[in-house]
């Protein structure tokens, strides 16, 4: 413990010499882009909870970026105690490439280790001038669709798969027709930003596009910041259940002796308070009582899951997003 405190104080001394005296433990939460606000709130709540429970002060540092990039940083040696990423495929890489976590990491916490969920919705301009209601409106000529690049953005992969799932459903599960549908949709995409926030900027600041495919929480956030007189949220008839998973990074917590607090940090996300914070930050809560309370906020959507339609992330990644996958095929004829 002394050793740990010494290292920690050394790290903290760089940032804040006063805090070093009080702090017992720090955690690094490596997350993806849109969770910034969520974890700011949650970290404060958890620190309070942990102080009351164990008497230790805990300081949680956050790191945000594209989900794939963050996973790579951890594999390359960024000492993350916990990883809270956009999709299970990226967390899988911590096992595949880094052997930092066990293979069955996703079974360690309830609900596929995803304490909150989200989905993909449409953000349209005020009064919906192009009358966009559902996925099939996006492939019409003259509609301009904004989405980030599925190759670089976790969120965009959810967008792509949601569109694909709709294509399947409309065409009696005909894969070729679904591909045609998605190809047509991407013909209407004028800009492929590398991340979700980049696309939001393109849509809102640059005024490009009639519709933005976005995380539900990003769409709410954009609406809150811009005011309802600028944009509207449209919920399509079918969308995908996005489960952003969380995991302790075993190799790191064992080395830094932070396992106990790191596990408690993730567990507490499932608590009443954790769920409430998630809901307030526009993530769909798992806990029934909280879900009831925020029922009005989250419209009912027909949600498919990646496991039932695409057979899991590893398979979806290989079929659609790896080199020569369907995304490459629709661009390279």
């Amino acid at each position: 413990m002394k050793n740990l405190t010494l290292t920690l104080s050394a790290i903290l001394a760089l940032a804040n010499p006063l805090a070093a005296l009080a702090a017992n433990v720090t955690l690094l939460n490596v997350s993806y882009d849109p969770t910034r606000e969520l974890y700011q709130d949650y970290n404060a709540a958890f620190a309070k909870y942990w102080k009351a429970k164990s008497g230790d002060d805990v300081i949680i540092k956050q790191s945000h970026g594209g989900s794939g990039k963050q996973a790579r940083a951890i594999v390359d040696g960024l000492e993350a105690d916990v990883a809270t990423l956009a999709l299970a495929y990226d967390v899988d890489q911590l096992h595949e490439k880094g052997k930092l976590i066990p293979k069955d990491w996703q079974k360690r916490l309830q609900n596929n280790s995803s304490p909150y969920t989200s989905t993909i919705v449409f953000l349209v301009r005020k009064d919906n001038p192009k009358n966009i209601k559902d996925w099939n409106d996006l492939v019409k000529p003259g509609i301009s669709v904004i989405t980030p690049n599925p190759k670089t953005s976790g969120g965009a992969r959810w967008n792509y798969l949601a569109a694909w799932a709709y294509g399947l459903k409309q065409n009696n599960n005909d894969e070729a027709k679904a591909k045609e549908f998605v190809a047509k949709l991407f013909k209407n995409v004028p800009v492929l930003d590398s991340g979700a926030r980049g696309s939001t900027t393109t849509f809102i600041e640059r005024g490009i596009g009639d519709v933005l495919l976005a995380w539900e929480n990003e769409a709410f956030l954009a609406k809150k910041e811009l005011g309802p007189d600028k944009v509207e949220i449209v919920v399509p008839s079918l969308s995908i259940l996005a489960e952003p998973p969380v995991s302790v990074v075993d190799k790191v917590v064992d080395k830094r002796k932070t396992r106990q607090v790191a596990e408690a940090y993730l567990q507490y996300l499932y608590s009443e308070e954790g769920q409430e914070i998630a809901a307030k930050n526009y993530y769909r809560p798992r806990l029934d009582t909280v879900a009831k309370k925020y029922e009005a906020q989250f419209p009912k959507v027909n949600l498919i899951t990646i496991d039932e339609v695409f057979g899991g992330w590893t398979k979806a990644q290989k079929t659609h997003f790896s080199d020569g996958g369907t995304f490459d095929q629709i661009y390279v004829k």
Binding site: G68, R72, N149, K151, T152, V189, V191, D328, Y331, V332
Partner: peptide, 19 residues
Amino acid sequence: MPMISEISPLLIITKLEQH
């Protein structure tokens, strides 16, 4: 946009994102 306005360094980053 792939094939149109995608520079080589972006392709490198894209591949890194795919691990």
